[in-house]
Amino acid sequence: MQLDLQNPPDYRHDTVLPLPIEVNANAWAVDAGCSGNPGQMEYQCVDLATGERVFHFGPVFGTNNIGEFLAIVHALALMQQRGITDKVIYSDSVNAALWVKKKQCKTKLERSPRTAELYNIIARAENWLRTHTVTTPILKWETKKWGEIPADFGRKK
């Protein structure tokens, strides 16, 4: 069920986005988009308080799950680099959050010359997870209740 929200809603003073009241606006939302799966994949992060894009990566040949995983790790690493300790991360991907928790991208994407650069990025992300302590909460974005995550690329039909 899609919520009919104003932008910004009159009951929220912590965001410019139309967020449900139970969503923490002191957060970054990440999402990936993929044209085909595998296909041209990209991911991005949006600050829920400001609505601004924090980062964008791609497109590269990959899968949506890989993009979701890399988006979370990218957000975690950037938060650490910037000394941000008070935000949470929202992702709509259960698989990606689990992969981050296990510190391993469990993709079945075929290794080939076409995917070599992406596999190098995955290896860097996994190494970062193994060598850093993650304390930032990674929360599930409840798409069925709240609609699409604000970092969505808006390509669904």
Score class of each variant (00 low, 15 high):
residue 2 Q to Y: 10
residue 2 Q to E: 12
residue 4 D to Q: 12
residue 5 L to T: 08
residue 6 Q to L: 13
residue 7 N to S: 11
residue 7 N to H: 03
residue 8 P to A: 02
residue 8 P to F: 06
residue 8 P to E: 04
residue 9 P to R: 05
residue 11 Y to R: 11
residue 11 Y to G: 01
residue 12 R to S: 08
residue 13 H to N: 13
residue 13 H to G: 10
residue 14 D to H: 06
residue 15 T to N: 05
residue 16 V to K: 12
residue 17 L to F: 09
residue 19 L to P: 08
residue 20 P to V: 12
residue 22 E to Y: 02
residue 27 A to H: 03
residue 28 W to V: 15
residue 28 W to K: 02
residue 32 A to Q: 05
residue 35 S to K: 14
residue 36 G to R: 07
residue 37 N to F: 11
residue 38 P to C: 13
residue 38 P to Q: 06
residue 38 P to G: 09
residue 38 P to L: 09
residue 39 G to N: 07
residue 39 G to Y: 04
residue 39 G to A: 08
residue 41 M to N: 01
residue 41 M to P: 11
residue 47 D to G: 02
residue 49 A to E: 14
residue 50 T to N: 05
residue 52 E to I: 00
residue 53 R to F: 02
residue 56 H to G: 00
residue 57 F to M: 07
residue 59 P to H: 07
residue 59 P to R: 07
residue 61 F to T: 05
residue 61 F to S: 03
residue 62 G to R: 03
residue 63 T to P: 11
residue 65 N to D: 08
residue 66 I to W: 05
residue 71 A to D: 01
residue 71 A to H: 01
residue 72 I to E: 01
residue 73 V to L: 06
residue 75 A to C: 15
residue 76 L to N: 07
residue 77 A to H: 08
residue 78 L to Q: 15
residue 81 Q to K: 15
residue 82 R to C: 04
residue 87 K to R: 15
residue 87 K to I: 03
residue 88 V to G: 01
residue 90 Y to A: 06
residue 91 S to Q: 00
residue 91 S to C: 11
residue 92 D to C: 04
residue 93 S to F: 08
residue 94 V to D: 10
residue 94 V to A: 09
residue 94 V to P: 00
residue 98 L to K: 10
residue 99 W to I: 06
residue 103 K to V: 09
residue 103 K to D: 02
residue 106 K to Y: 02
residue 108 K to S: 11
residue 109 L to W: 04
residue 110 E to Y: 00
residue 113 P to Q: 09
residue 114 R to I: 07
residue 115 T to L: 09
residue 116 A to M: 10
residue 118 L to H: 04
residue 119 Y to H: 11
residue 119 Y to F: 15
residue 121 I to E: 12
residue 124 R to E: 15
residue 125 A to T: 11
residue 125 A to C: 13
residue 125 A to F: 07
residue 126 E to Q: 15
residue 126 E to P: 14
residue 127 N to A: 15
residue 127 N to S: 15
residue 128 W to Y: 12
residue 130 R to F: 04
residue 132 H to R: 10
residue 133 T to C: 12
residue 138 I to P: 08
residue 139 L to V: 08
residue 139 L to Y: 03
residue 139 L to C: 12
residue 140 K to Y: 08
residue 141 W to N: 03
residue 143 T to Q: 03
residue 143 T to Y: 01
residue 145 K to T: 09
residue 148 E to Y: 14
residue 150 P to Q: 11
residue 151 A to E: 06
residue 151 A to T: 09
residue 153 F to L: 14
residue 154 G to F: 12
residue 156 K to S: 10
